[in-house]
Amino acid sequence: MYLPCPCCGWRDMREFTCIGAADYCDRPEADAPPEAWDNYLHLRDNPAGPARDLWYHAPCGTWLEVARDTVTHAVTGSTAVEEAG
């Protein structure tokens, strides 16, 4: 499997670390209620189909959100976390 690093282009999966759903970028405000934190840290839509997940390309240090299909493994694009939303 290859993933498109926004910096380096398509690279072998072995260079990346995946930490799961891209939900992890949407950190609640400091004073958000506990439910918001539970939602952020633990609960997941976990879609079977198009999904966005978070990967780290260790060789260049870029964190990226990858648009991927969890059923077909098709990779359709990526954005650097720094430039996202």
Partner: peptide, 13 residues
């Protein structure tokens, strides 16, 4: 290092 990179890129743009 990975954690700090994440915090910087995701939350400290």
């Amino acid at each position: 290092m990975q954690h700090l990179e994440f915090v910087q890129q995701a939350f400290c743009r």
